[in-house]
Amino acid sequence: MANMKDMIPAFDLVQPTTVEDAVDLMKDAGDEGWVLAGGLDTFDWFKDRIKRPRVVIDIGGIEEMRGFRDEAGGIEIGAMTTLTEVANHARVRSEFGVLATAAEHVATPQIRNQGTLGGNITQDTRCWYYRSGWPCYRAGGNVCYASAPLAMNREHCILGRSRCVAVNPSDTAPALIALDAKMVVQSPRRRLYDAEDYFIGPSVDITRMTVLEPGDLLTQVFVPAFWANSNFYFEKVRDRGSWDFQLVSVAAAFRMSGSTIEDARIAVNGVAPYPVRLDAVERLVRGEAASESLQNAAGELAIQGTRALRHNDYKIVMMRNLVRRAVRSVAA
């Protein structure tokens, strides 16, 4: 079969207007179904003619999955809310700034206008071996091309590898982990996941990035008020100022008491097949002032257990430096 790209293969399109119907349609479609949210990840797969679902379930018409709902304990954001809406939302900006900042760092304005929060956190990895349609482990094959001795793996992982060395590309994912957000999944049973548990590594299932299995739909993201108005830090290192995914990014929330870090949540992305929450670093900084020595210790602790592939040793120092900077951001 000869290689062909750039034309979307035919599919049937269904456009449900309620979560219930969407889940129902997904169940019917099973493995042959595909959920279309913002479409930025989807159309890439389709245009490369690698993913060829028979049925595409466009969830863009489900109003209950859009927008913000203020709740006593926090704010609920529909998974289909666009990243622009997230970045511009007054309460998100004022109370959960790290999420707004992360959303602002996604790709480009047009992508943010169309891309959704749910899509951003649920998107597939951009490992170029995998995305080229090569039959790697993640694609159901029996090899990881990206970790071969001479492979091109500058943008691959330094942590959490298990046969697959891809990284999670999401900008908002680490921010949501820093905010201790909860993911609401409907299938049709409704489940709640802590943000960091929503993402899974290849050792759990090498073909998926998140807990979502066929038939599961991420409907809302709930951001609890607990971390509202904390001191936030977000930084994303990338090659170009636009479009590019992170090389390494960090998102952090600090609750301060004077110059002492009372509590912290720190997550990095671009370093593992899933966004990594740095619990050990959080424990280290808790109850301390963000002195230079603490910044350095946090950085060093963060990179414990990292292991570079041929081309991505730099990520270790970049990750260390970003964690340092995150802690430095609350220095007196």
């Binding site: 399109l13 159309f43 622009t84 479009w243």
Partner: peptide, 27 residues
């Protein structure tokens, strides 16, 4: 580019700029 990577296809949908290469007409 047809891949949301260049912006030449940008149009306004209800006044919002979007990549027309990356949205289905039926949407």
């Amino acid at each position: 580019c047809d891949r949301a990577e260049c912006g030449a296809c940008t149009v306004l949908v209800d006044g919002v700029n979007q990549y027309s290469c990356s949205i289905l007409t039926h949407q």
